[in-house]
Design a protein around this nucleic acid. Sequence first.
DNA 1: CGCAAGATTATT
DNA 2: ATAATCTTGCGA
Length: 166
Amino acid sequence: MKNITLTYDFYNQHVTIVAKMLLGKIIVFNNLQSIITETEAYRGYDDPASHAFRGRTMRCNIMFDHPGKLYVYLIYGKYYCCNITAEPLGQPAAVLLRGIKLFNNKTITGPGKISKYLNINKTHNGISLIKNSDIYIADAMNVKNFFSTPRIGISKALNKLWRYYY
DNA sequence: CGCAAGATTATT
DNA sequence: ATAATCTTGCGA
């Protein structure tokens, strides 16, 4: 198992590629390490379920920024959702973290619960995972056998199978 | 300025 | 199946 931090080029790909490739990778968040087991892809302009579908807003601004940054927003007044930006600067896209597995083998499913466990909040919005020694994602395995389904909790674009897990 | 909806979760 | 909870984005 390699121990390499994922690079700008890794995140600078189509968001569905990044979402699939993030499966099995190790997310390091201030001394807490876990393995990514479930992701979802969101993409501006051509994806009605994306926050950036109708262009730039205050909330989704980070989706337009450089790839490899955290996009964190509050949902339902209570829960933080943690995303990682993808694709070139100016092309809005992000991968939502939906499931992680801890090294004690316990699994956490649900974006709100992940953020709660990792202590992710609004202050982390916009920080880069590249060349960051405290918060980053390390290369690990490539998961080749994964499932694809419609994304959870949305009412639009249910035809897109952009949720990935294994 | 007001209001409906929301990339969720815990509880019934 | 449904309430909880409050920020955001859109329309007026």
